[in-house]
């Protein structure tokens, strides 16, 4: 019994550490006092600023558009890459897989400066393309890693059966292989999305000068504390957290709708 209480206490303590900053930030997003900890009366002003200050709106939209673009491109490229790796002759598959894994191990800063080097030598400055390429280079290996296990699980004779029954290779891939590996593709896409949304280092090196994402905008603002938008970040954190909560709840409700046993098994598999 004491063991159980201690366990719960420990879990609660760690959760408190994890959530205290977020909760405090959310509470103080409902007041417009500049300094955190001071309560200047209830106000939704900080939330309004997110949508009315043009700079803020721009960087939020930039972040989302970039993440979606990078997510889609890396998913397509990564899925094709995963199939290439899986179906290639052993040696070449290994070479491609190894090359793909480089950026998984590599430090973000090294990826960032190496791409910045290429851009500044051949293009002379950073463009939206260098930024997008940076994100795709960073995200795609993770898509590959989430698709390959699904290819391994798949029954290899399905594709051949489709060919024998007269399907063209393209048709067989779209109608037979793709549906089988779809869960891996979807989780790869979501992973690419979160990696892109979260990235700071690669973005800061490959972005054009006047372009900002949430990461670079917040980072620069925190560094030059003279800037006045700092309080608005509390509202930004609150909104992002709300979105996460909604997504998690929706996913859970859907999962609960399915057979609980299946959900449990899948979690075990993961």
């Amino acid at each position: 019994m004491t063991k159980k209480i201690l366990s719960w206490a420990f879990i609660a303590l760690v959760l408190a550490f994890v959530y205290a900053p977020i909760v405090v930030l959310i509470i103080f997003s409902f007041t417009d006092a500049t300094i955190l900890g001071q309560w200047g009366g209830f106000s939704l002003d900080l939330f309004k600023r997110l949508f009315t200050v043009p700079e803020m709106r721009k960087m939020i939209v930039n972040t989302i558009v970039l993440a979606l673009l990078a997510g889609v491109i890396s998913t397509v490229l990564g899925t094709l890459g995963a199939m290439g790796i899986f179906y290639a002759k052993k040696g070449w598959g290994k070479v491609l897989q190894g090359a793909s894994n480089i950026n998984v191990i590599n430090a973000e800063i090294v990826i960032a400066v190496s791409l910045a080097l290429v851009s500044s030598i051949f293009v002379f400055n950073m463009t939206y393309y260098s930024l997008l390429i940076g994100h795709v280079a960073f995200c795609t290996p993770f898509v590959v890693l989430s698709v390959i296990p699904k290819l391994k699980q798949m029954d290899p004779s399905l594709y051949e059966a489709a060919l024998d029954l007269g399907a063209s290779p393209a048709k067989a891939l779209f109608k037979v292989v793709l549906p089988e590996i779809l869960p891996g593709i979807v989780s790869g896409f979501l992973l690419a999305l979160t990696l892109s949304l979260d990235d700071y280092i690669i973005t800061s090196f490959t972005k054009p000068a006047e372009f900002d994402t949430i990461s670079t905008y917040v980072y620069n603002a925190v560094k030059n504390t003279a800037k006045s938008e700092l309080p608005a970040f509390r509202a930004l954190a609150a909104v992002i957290f709300l979105i996460i909560v909604i997504v998690v709840v929706v996913l859970n409700v859907r999962a609960a709708g399915k057979n609980k046993q299946i959900a449990k098994m899948e979690k075990g598999k993961k």
Partner: peptide, 12 residues
């Protein structure tokens, strides 16, 4: 099917 990996190989 291994041809499918070519775009990614080029990208890498």
């Amino acid at each position: 099917r291994s041809f499918l990996g070519i775009p990614y190989a080029l990208f890498l």
